[in-house]
Design a binder for these strands. Structure first.
Length: 253
DNA sequence: ATAATAGCGATCTTAGCCTT
DNA sequence: AAGGCTAAGATCGCTATTAT
């Protein structure tokens, strides 16, 4: 049906990304069929991990809208052939230069493949019977081939975000513990006491206001745990002192 | 006519810092 | 905690040029 008479490279400069994605698209897909919008949602989640700009997804969404079916399936190329003008219309009026840049980014990322015609235009040629004899445009098949990989990347992104949230929560709780211990020690006229921890605690609170990666959060948690441990020791010593003086009064009685 | 690339200035986004 | 400010980098869109 969709007979291909072109290479995926067309007139463009060949890059390692293009060669890799062309080879990948030739591999049989693990899934028989995938929901194109589910793949798109997974890509949206894993966008940063795949190094895609957000507007590239706008362009991909526009490209997907030219595929008449909801599912991507089969062993043949899945080619859509909109002109840049039609594509720009469906990409919320994106300027064509920008559109081309993002099409190049999607190609380089191995999410779509180009099948260029001799004159660079995108179209479907039909034979005498009206059947498609050649189609020139963008091949969406890499999305089918890589659907499982994209879904896994989306899961990994969600897991990483959740892990980051938990680490942050842990740090907030540690800082809160330190604040409470410092408040307990402070009013009891401890000379070295809680005041020596005020500066590092302020530093931890300031750090919390920034965007932190997992390694930075781990380091801050360790730091907070060390401070809490020191404060706990001081608080315990203080309790001992209070108890001792209390016993004197009891003895007198 | 249509599509592609490249250069360049304009605009937007983000991180970090500071103030309230 | 929320919001404002700034600098740096990323992104955008216009334009010129070339290819088919």
């Amino acid at each position: 049906m969709q007979q291909l008479t072109t290479t995926p490279f067309g007139r463009r400069q060949v890059t390692s990304g293009l060669i890799a994605s062309a080879a990948r698209a030739a591999v049989p897909a693990a899934d028989d069929a995938v929901d194109k919008w589910q793949v798109f949602r997974d890509l949206t989640t894993a966008r940063a991990a795949l190094g895609l700009p957000s507007r590239a997804l706008t362009v991909l969404s526009a490209l997907l809208s030219f595929h008449p079916e909801t599912e991507l399936c089969g062993d043949d190329p899945i080619i859509v052939f909109p002109s840049n003008r039609r594509l720009a219309e469906r990409a919320h009026g994106m300027a064509e230069a920008t559109l081309r840049r993002h099409l190049a980014a999607l190609t380089e990322a191995g999410l779509i493949l180009r099948h260029d015609s001799p004159n660079g235009k995108r179209y479907a040629a039909r034979d005498g019977s009206g059947a498609l004899s050649a189609v020139f445009g963008f091949d969406l098949r890499p999305l089918l081939v890589r659907a499982a990989e994209i879904a896994a990347a989306a899961r990994a992104t969600r897991d990483a975000a959740e892990a980051l949230r938990r680490k942050r929560e842990c740090l907030v709780l540690l800082i809160r513990d330190c604040d409470k211990l410092a408040a307990f020690i402070g009013p009891r006229d401890d000379p070295a006491g809680a005041a020596s921890h005020t500066t590092p605690l302020a530093g931890l609170r300031a750090a919390l206001r920034r965007k932190l990666d997992a390694a930075a959060l781990d380091q801050l948690c360790n730091c907070a745990a060390t401070i809490r441990s020191a404060l706990e020791t001081q608080a315990a010593a203080l309790c001992q002192t209070v108890q001792s003086s209390g016993q004197d009064a009891q003895t007198e009685r």
